[in-house]
Amino acid sequence: MAKLYFYYSAMNAGKSTILLQSAHNYQERGMAVMLFTAAIDDRYEIGQIASRIGINAEANLFTKESDLWSLIKDQHQTSPLSCILIDEAQFLTKEQVYALSDVVDTLKIPVLAFGIRTDFQGELFAGSKALLAWSDKLIELKTVCHCGSKAIMVIRVDEQGKPVKEGAQVEIGGNDRYLSVCRKHFKEAVR
């Protein structure tokens, strides 16, 4: 039975690596998959899901305006799909997550969404909030804080490495702008 899965974590937990491995597993068995990533994330090559360990794959881009239901349904009618994989799922809208649940419930295609749960201020992203509410299965991927504890939060830092406490929810960046930390170190950073 198809399900909607949400794999969530702080940054640097290997979300993209696991997504790419999952896609490879389907494709190696001759099954078609459809990959999506957020158009807003331009850290790597556009239209690519890339892992820091050096693997990547082409992906469809989504924006807040993308009609995921129609894109997936049309592709599925042309060539039956076995799985949908979404990277940077925190950037999905509530409506897009609802559409992905329709893909699962109506088209019977499993959807694996990978994303960050909270922003640098400890607030849920819209896509993550909807996925936490509507997913059939939640899977936490773990990474560690500099102290060795489990990192569950993300802090944004400036060019000097100092924590940033205010600003837009979305600012694309990697290890140069964000650090994964435990709750204790998150609270210390935002005080």
Rank of each mutant, 00 (worst) to 15 (best):
Ser51Cys: 08
Met1Cys: 10
Glu188Asp: 14
Ile53Lys: 13
Arg52Glu: 04
Met153Pro: 00
Ala50Ser: 15
Asp176Pro: 08
Cys145Lys: 03
Asn60Met: 11
Gly14Ala: 11
Lys94Glu: 15
Ala99Met: 10
Ala50Glu: 13
Tyr5Trp: 11
Arg43Gln: 02
Tyr98Asp: 11
Leu141Phe: 04
Lys94Gln: 13
Leu141Ser: 06
Asn56Thr: 04
Glu123Phe: 03
Glu65Ala: 15
Lys64Met: 04
Gly47Val: 14
Thr143Glu: 13
Trp69Ser: 00
Leu138Phe: 03
Tyr26Ala: 05
Phe6Glu: 09
Gly148Glu: 02
Glu123Leu: 05
Gly30Tyr: 02
Gly30Trp: 00
Asn25Tyr: 09
Thr143Cys: 14
Ala10Cys: 07
Lys108Phe: 07
Glu58Trp: 00
Leu61Glu: 14
Gly174Met: 04
Phe91Ala: 12
Pro80Asn: 11
Tyr98His: 07
Ser82Ala: 15
Leu35Ala: 02
Cys147Gly: 09
Glu65Lys: 15
Leu81Gly: 06
Thr37Phe: 01
Lys184Tyr: 08
Ile84Trp: 00
Glu95Val: 06
Thr93Glu: 00
Leu85Ser: 01
Ile139Tyr: 06
Gly30Leu: 01
Lys64Ile: 04
Leu4Asp: 14
Asp158Ser: 09
Glu58His: 07
Arg117Phe: 02
Lys94Ala: 11
Lys162Trp: 00
Glu95Asp: 14
Leu131Gly: 08
Gln27Arg: 14
Phe125Pro: 12
Leu20Ile: 01
Tyr7Lys: 02
Thr78Val: 06
Ile86Trp: 03
Arg156Ile: 05
Thr17Trp: 01
Ala113Glu: 03
Val190Tyr: 02
His76Leu: 05
Val33Ile: 11
Asn175Cys: 05
Gln160Trp: 06
Ile172Tyr: 05
Ile84Met: 01
Asp42Asn: 15
Trp134Gly: 06
Thr17Gly: 00
Glu171Lys: 14
Val181Gly: 04
Ser128Pro: 09
Ala113His: 03
Ile109His: 09
Leu19Asp: 03
Ile116Pro: 05
Ala59Thr: 03
Leu132Cys: 12
His185Phe: 07
Gly115Ser: 11
Ala38Arg: 11
Met34Thr: 02
Val181Met: 03
Gly14Phe: 04
Ala151Tyr: 03
Tyr5Gly: 10
Ser16His: 09
Leu100Met: 15
Glu123His: 05
Leu4Ile: 12
Pro80Thr: 07
Phe91Asn: 09
Ala151Arg: 04
Lys137Thr: 14
Glu123Ser: 05
Leu68Val: 14
Leu132Phe: 15
Lys108Asn: 14
Glu159Asn: 09
Leu124Ala: 11
Ala13Ser: 15
Gly167Cys: 05
Val103His: 06
Cys83Trp: 01
His185Met: 14
Phe114Cys: 01
Gln121Ser: 10
Lys3Ile: 05
Leu141Cys: 08
Ser180Asn: 12
Ala113Asn: 02
Glu45Lys: 10
Ser16Pro: 04
Leu19Trp: 02
Lys64Arg: 09
Ser22Pro: 00
Lys162Thr: 09
Ala13Thr: 00
Arg117Pro: 06
Ile46Arg: 15
Val97His: 12
Leu71Ile: 10
Leu112Pro: 00
Asp105Gln: 12
Phe91Ser: 10
Ala113Gly: 03
Thr17Cys: 00
